[in-house]
């Protein structure tokens, strides 16, 4: 579960300050599928980075986890944030972000290295994750030998292999054609249903967003609408 209280994120650069997120307060319960929408520069990716423990807010508070194991993300050191990312959060990127020199199996195994699972056990789990996304016959293929949809399936397997509490997806269908887009969204639906995982997905695509339980609309860094589907 996420609890954001009055969260603001400001970036300081050479050209001055840019407030990407302003006073956002919201709660995301465990197991919910949330779609985040809004125009470019509205703060969607910044929200995802804060939820994913990739950035700390400039002000405000972010609590993550259930009551007994909740952590305050904005107060954790970088090492602890990395541990949270490693064990509890799975990322899926628009550009897939696979390591081009590693096979599908090795890419998935890369998700297990920071939690200390290696060797045969890591290979077994990675194989299972690839079977779950329908790529059991592509384990030794390099990303360049896979289609866009297959690459995104590998990325999904990499996010799932550590059995995370939350999956954060940034435009996961943005680089796919219509056929693959539907294919991947169906996969997300199945995973969300079967794994009981919290799914936060940034998307421009309203047809994708309509599958979610809740839609957050961000504009100019502010939470403009919080819509239950």
């Amino acid at each position: 579960m996420y609890t954001l209280n009055n969260v603001t994120k400001t970036y300081r650069g050479h050209t001055g300050e840019l407030t990407a997120l302003r006073n956002v307060t919201l709660t995301i319960p465990d197991g919910e599928w949330v779609a985040v929408q809004g125009p470019t520069g509205g703060g969607k990716s910044t929200l995802l980075q804060l939820l994913g423990a990739l950035e700390r807010p400039t002000s405000g508070r972010i609590d993550f986890g259930s009551d007994s194991t909740a952590v305050q993300l904005d107060a954790l050191a970088e090492g602890r944030l990395a541990s949270v990312r490693a064990s509890q959060i799975g990322f899926i990127f628009q550009g897939f972000n696979l390591i081009p020199t590693l096979s599908a199996l090795d890419n998935v195994m890369a998700g297990l290295r920071p939690i200390g699972i290696r060797g045969a056990e890591a290979a077994r789990r990675a194989q299972e994750a690839l079977e779950m996304v329908g790529l059991h016959d592509r384990v030794e293929h390099l990303p360049a030998a896979l289609s866009g949809g297959q690459q995104q399936r590998v990325a999904i397997a990499r996010a799932l292999v550590k059995k995370p509490d939350v999956i954060l997806a940034d435009e996961p269908t943005g680089n796919l054609d219509e056929m693959m887009r539907l294919d991947i969204i169906s996969l997300f639906e199945r995973i969300w249903y079967e794994q009981s995982v919290t799914l936060v997905m940034v998307t421009h695509d309203s047809s994708v967003a309509s599958r979610a339980q809740r839609i957050l609309h961000l504009e100019n860094g502010s939470l403009l609408a919080d819509i239950a589907a």
């Binding site: 541990s83 920071p114 939690i115 990499r158």
Partner: peptide, 9 residues
């Protein structure tokens, strides 16, 4: 990406 996956420095 690796850091986002939880790889430490």
């Amino acid at each position: 990406t690796l850091k986002a996956l939880g790889w430490k420095n």
